[in-house]
């Protein structure tokens, strides 16, 4: 018997009651010259992993493969900075939806959990009413839409409807929606569901600009809005008390060269952005509680002895078959 058993608890004393964190990150652009959108998405992925959210709670959707793209001079590596001090495509990356699987329909199905039976759990957003969800979208957009894969569009009204469905199905406790595209504000403004804070990188009529490029890779590697977000997040540790207001303060129009558009803060019923910790959405703080006394293990006879109790019998005659008919 082991004397000390660690129980894992998700416990956050000050905030509203959320017990788990989920993240949905989608890069909606295809083609090599949209490298920066994949870098944006991967940077957020890297940050949330660093702050403690496990892969099983992250759904990463990348429309195109940048790391193993034949045009990538740094094979299997993606950088979001010219200095290349951080490689954001680590060895343990897990991309759940890739290539042609990233469609508006699949994105909505993931959010509302209306997926076909048989979808593996790594591709499902299995959140409940105590989940805090971070949704991050990046790509090319316009007034009222976001372009997916250069062939279809996600409408802002559809997105706000999907959030409303999530609210009605009690799929989130609080939701933080970030979007880095041109005219991103048009995607944020129609949101009308409670407990959602949204921030878009630019208002309607403005373009979101990219930050800088890498001459060897040959493309722009990060967008301004995400660059400053990351700059802020790099200073955040898992036990940080930084709030959303601190994050929003970083978005100065002079620096990101566009005016961020925020959603209606009155929708966020429980508290103000000044009371919301960054780690409520970007991190998954787990406090461990050590017990001294012994705890009896689960009664083993409750579990089935077999992995698949329905498996029929195995007295089937198994034979080998000739490989060729001649």
């Amino acid at each position: 018997m082991l004397p000390a058993i660690c129980l894992l608890l998700l416990f956050c004393p000050l905030s509203a009651v959320h017990t788990n964190n989920w993240v949905v990150i989608a890069d909606a652009s295809r083609y090599w010259f949209n490298y920066r959108h994949a870098a944006n998405a991967l940077s957020i992925y890297y940050s949330v992993k660093r702050l403690g959210i496990p892969d099983s709670h992250i759904i990463l959707m990348l429309s195109d493969d940048m790391a193993c793209n034949p045009r990538n001079p740094t094979s299997a590596q993606v950088f979001n900075n010219r200095d290349r001090h951080v490689q954001i495509y680590p060895d343990d990356v897990e991309v759940d939806y890739r290539d042609s699987e990233v469609t508006v329909e699949n994105f909505f199905r993931v959010l509302t959990d209306r997926l076909p039976e048989g979808t593996p759990s790594s591709k499902r957003l299995m959140s409940d009413e105590n989940s805090n969800i971070l949704v991050y979208l990046t790509g090319h957009g316009g007034d009222g839409f976001l372009k997916f894969q250069d062939t279809e569009e996600m409408n802002a009204l559809e997105l706000s409807d999907v959030f409303q469905q999530m609210h009605e199905k009690k799929r989130y406790n609080e939701l933080f929606f970030m979007i880095d595209t041109c005219q991103a504000g048009s995607m944020v403004l129609p949101i009308k569901s409670p407990n959602i804070i949204g921030v878009g990188s630019s208002t309607v009529g403005q373009d979101s600009l990219s930050h800088h490029g890498d001459h060897e890779i040959g493309v722009y590697v990060i967008d301004r809005f995400t660059y400053f977000t990351l700059d802020f997040l790099e200073k955040v540790q898992p036990n940080s008390r930084a709030t959303l207001n601190d994050l929003f303060r970083v978005y100065s129009t002079a620096e990101i060269r566009s005016t961020p558009q925020y959603s209606n803060f009155n929708l966020f019923k429980t508290r103000r952005p000044g009371d919301v910790l960054i780690t409520d959405f970007f991190g998954s703080v787990r406090q461990t509680v050590l017990f001294d006394e012994q705890i009896a293990p689960l009664n083993r006879t409750v579990l089935a002895n077999n992995l698949n109790p329905n498996e029929q019998n195995l007295d089937l005659q198994l034979d080998s078959v000739p490989q060729l008919p001649f």
Partner: peptide, 30 residues
Amino acid sequence: KPVGLTSTKGDSRYMRYGVSPFEVVCTENL
């Protein structure tokens, strides 16, 4: 045909085969 032992005697109705030639292979598969 199967290279191992099967119960179906190589009846092709029990087999399915598909190829996606544009599949990307990268770190997330490893």
